[in-house]
Amino acid sequence: MKVAIYGREFHPSVIPYVQHLFDSLVAKDTELWIYEDFHQFLEQQVECPQKLNTYSIHHQLPDDIGFMLSLGGDGTMLAAVAIVGDSGIPVAGINFGRLGFLASINKDEIETSIDAILHGEYNIQKRTLLAVQSDQTALFDGNHFALNDITLFKYDSSAMITVKAYLDGESLNAYWADGIIAATPTGSTAYSLSCGGPIIMPGSGNFVITPISPHNLNVRPVVISDDMELDLEIESRSGKFLLSCDSKTAAISTDVRLKITRAHFQVNLIRLKNYSYFSNLRNKLLWGLDARNY
């Protein structure tokens, strides 16, 4: 089977796990395709297989690639999803980071997890993405999709910004705040959650608009249908604001009006048979961690 691997620079403590992964994949006679920048880093860290291929965009991968492995934390997983784009390549994440909401495979379970994936013993979980666009300028070189969230934030540390939000052309609110977050169900457990947003089940057909430090304390997150179009106008004393699309960030002029919609494609996440969304929530958010439960 042909396997794509994506990763970024990692801490030296991870080296034994990465070496074990490569040894396991080579022993299983897989054909490896490694992200070019990551390969240059790996050559100085581990003993790479002699026969491997490199890629920099998913169009360079063969049509019959089996799946992509993301090596790192959730941030690396988001970057891997950006590389995969609308290709439909399934993505599995081995967690070398801290939280591991998206990268759900434990680094101590590499051998059994790889065996299971190679034998097709997994489920595909389809996750919705958001797209941000503007009629006035191209954003992020066309890679304007987010699995977690699209966030607007004030450009500097001074005054708040005003974000005028419209849903399907109708005025929703003028947010006086440090910014706002438009989060998918996947991203509802990320930045949006830390700003007081609700947890939304994947596949529920919604996304959430969450203000960041709003000036009016009665302004609260709102959950809306992902069929709706969110248009945003921004006012700022600096004349700029920061726009982030998962791990990508750019400074944008306030003359630019934004449109946020559901992306035209979904991403395929590999989940092993023993994976449970609710169990993952309990473990990562420490739900039920009370002496009375033990």
Results as ranks from 00 to 15, higher is better:
107 K>H: 14
281 L>N: 05
199 I>G: 01
155 Y>W: 13
35 Y>W: 11
290 D>H: 13
75 G>P: 08
215 H>E: 08
21 L>R: 10
65 I>W: 00
104 S>I: 00
261 T>C: 07
190 A>P: 10
120 G>E: 09
104 S>H: 10
75 G>Q: 06
139 L>T: 01
146 A>D: 10
85 G>F: 01
266 Q>D: 14
101 F>V: 11
42 L>V: 12
212 I>R: 03
62 P>R: 08
254 T>C: 15
28 K>G: 03
273 K>N: 13
146 A>V: 12
174 A>H: 12
276 S>N: 03
40 Q>Y: 08
70 S>N: 10
169 G>T: 07
45 Q>W: 00
49 P>T: 04
46 V>H: 01
107 K>C: 06
213 S>W: 02
166 Y>K: 13
22 F>A: 09
161 I>L: 15
192 S>K: 06
10 F>H: 11
173 N>R: 13
179 G>C: 08
71 L>K: 08
164 K>E: 15
38 F>I: 08
74 D>R: 03
263 A>P: 13
51 K>L: 06
96 F>T: 09
82 A>E: 13
74 D>H: 02
95 N>H: 06
210 T>Q: 04
239 G>P: 07
153 F>K: 14
106 N>P: 00
60 Q>T: 00
73 G>W: 09
274 N>A: 10
133 Q>R: 15
38 F>H: 00
59 H>C: 00
67 F>G: 05
187 G>C: 02
137 T>A: 13
263 A>W: 10
279 S>A: 08
150 I>L: 01
24 S>T: 14
227 D>T: 15
192 S>D: 01
125 Q>L: 06
46 V>A: 04
58 H>M: 01
267 V>P: 03
152 L>D: 06
179 G>Q: 07
207 F>A: 00
241 F>D: 08
138 A>Y: 03
63 D>G: 08
160 M>Y: 01
257 R>G: 10
226 D>V: 12
258 L>I: 10
